[in-house]
Simulated assay, not measured.
Amino acid sequence: MFKSGNCTTCTTCGSCQQTPNVDTPILFCMHCQPSDAPCLKVCKENAIEVLGGAITINGEKCNRCGDCAGVCPIGIIKI
């Protein structure tokens, strides 16, 4: 379970995983409920998807606009 007070990197709690410095943004996040996830709501390309309860980025749909990164409440999305 995510505990915001413990979050210093994406691997501290194990709820989120993100690989920096890649051509395609990779995300596997379970911080927000999909129904409340701001990144899911803001993505105009519908590139933010739910996979097994986790929020993911579909690299084939993502245009790297950065809108999702701007609204992420824990700053885990890096574009």
Rank of each mutant, 00 (worst) to 15 (best):
T11F: 03
T56C: 13
Q33Y: 07
G52Q: 08
C43F: 01
G52W: 10
F2V: 10
N21Q: 13
A54H: 05
P34M: 09
S35P: 00
S15A: 13
C10R: 09
I48E: 00
D23S: 10
P20Y: 09
T8Q: 11
D36F: 04
I55T: 15
C10D: 07
C16L: 13
M30G: 15
K61Q: 06
R64T: 14
H31R: 13
C13S: 11
Q33V: 05
G75E: 07
E49P: 00
C10Y: 08
S4K: 14
N46H: 12
C7H: 01
C7Q: 05
E45A: 15
V71L: 07
G14R: 01
P73E: 04
C16A: 12
D23I: 00
A47W: 10
A54E: 06
F28M: 03
T24R: 10
N63L: 12
D23V: 06
G70M: 05
G52C: 09
N63V: 13
H31L: 08
K41P: 00
G75N: 09
C62I: 15
F2Y: 15
G53W: 11
G75W: 06
C32M: 03
I48Y: 05
Q17P: 00
G66W: 02
L51S: 07
V22L: 14
C65E: 13
E45F: 13
M1K: 08
C10Q: 03
I77V: 15
T56I: 15
T12W: 07
G53Y: 12
V50N: 02
D23H: 05
P73D: 03
I74L: 10
T19E: 15
E49K: 15
A54I: 04
Q33G: 00
A47K: 06
L40F: 03
I26L: 12
I74R: 11
Q17F: 10
C29K: 01
G70P: 00
N58S: 06
S35I: 08
V50F: 02
G70I: 02
S4L: 04
D23L: 13
M1H: 09
C39M: 02
C13N: 10
L27A: 01
D36W: 03
G53H: 11
C29S: 08
D36K: 09
I26R: 11
M30T: 15
E49Y: 01
A47I: 12
G52K: 09
S15M: 11
